[in-house]
Amino acid sequence: MSDPTRFDLDDRQRAMLAEMGVRVWWPSSPAEPAVAPDAPAAQAPVATAAPAAVTPAAPSVAQPPARPAPLAPPPARAASPALAVKPLADGVDRMDWAALQQTAAACEACGLCAQRKNSVFGVGDVHADWLVVGEAPSEEDDLAGEPFAGQAGQLLDNMLKAVGLSRKAQGEGGVYIANVTKCRTPGTQNPSPEELATCAPYLVRQVALVQPKIILLMGRFAVQSVLQTTEPLGKLRGQVHTHQGVPVVVTYHPSYLLRNPADKAKAWADLVLALKTVQS
């Protein structure tokens, strides 16, 4: 059986991987056995003087162990600014693209809308074979009104180029990119389960409208929202899942890869798995 992560690369793809910081190398022959280092030369025994007599010390009284200081409780997640939230609009599951985007932009179904500057709906080819789903929008996404802006977006663009995709392409080579929530969270806070659940119908409808051949989930909150599991992302990698009948591949978020560049090679293996799934 062929290696599922093996992928023949052309010069352009190698250049894109270099931009990602991934060094591609396949072994051409079995590794040579390691040569054990020379053993250190034996040393002559050193004569030691006889130990001096030691007067036994008086027995000490056992002291009770010190009681550990109580652990401070973890800081509570700051609540979103007070807002009289409204129910999710009726008929989200039947809306076309224009109505869905307008509804998401005006949505006040959770407190996240209070601090948004822009609703971050999605970008790319609405009929693409690939659907990339990230987590909550970042501050840069909020300002741009587009998912995966800033450095994380640059890395994602290079990752997509390595497999022949672009957010600006239409038809072959196109990709649609969205997030699991359409509004950013305050500061650097993670989206709550309630916020993920409130916004989920928008993404469900986006999947139904795009009808992709593959969904690439980037980050643990994308996994939690779409696959409805709290299993660690590392345990879900390397296999093909399904959502709404569409194959799903899990990988790391570009923001994580910027902090942990050693895992870029794993992300490349995930991209290859997604590509092979589409081609099959």
Rank of each mutant, 00 (worst) to 15 (best):
P4R: 13
T5Y: 04
R6K: 07
F7R: 14
A15C: 04
A18L: 08
G21R: 06
P27S: 13
S29D: 05
A31D: 15
V35N: 08
A36Q: 15
P37Q: 14
A42R: 15
A42Y: 14
A44K: 12
P45G: 09
P45M: 06
A47Q: 12
A49Q: 10
V54Q: 13
P59L: 13
V61Y: 07
P65G: 06
P65N: 08
R67H: 02
P70L: 03
A76P: 00
S80W: 06
A82T: 03
P87T: 10
L100F: 02
Q101R: 15
Q101I: 13
T103D: 08
A106T: 13
A114P: 02
A114M: 03
Q115R: 06
R116Q: 11
S119Q: 05
A136T: 11
D142Y: 09
E146N: 08
G150F: 05
L156G: 07
V163H: 01
Q170R: 14
G171P: 10
G171I: 13
G187W: 00
Q189K: 02
A197W: 07
T198D: 08
T198P: 00
R205S: 05
L216Q: 11
L217D: 11
F221R: 05
F221D: 09
V223A: 03
R237T: 12
R237S: 10
V240F: 11
H253S: 10
P254C: 02
Y256V: 08
L258C: 04
P261N: 05
K264S: 11
D270A: 15
A274W: 04
A274M: 12
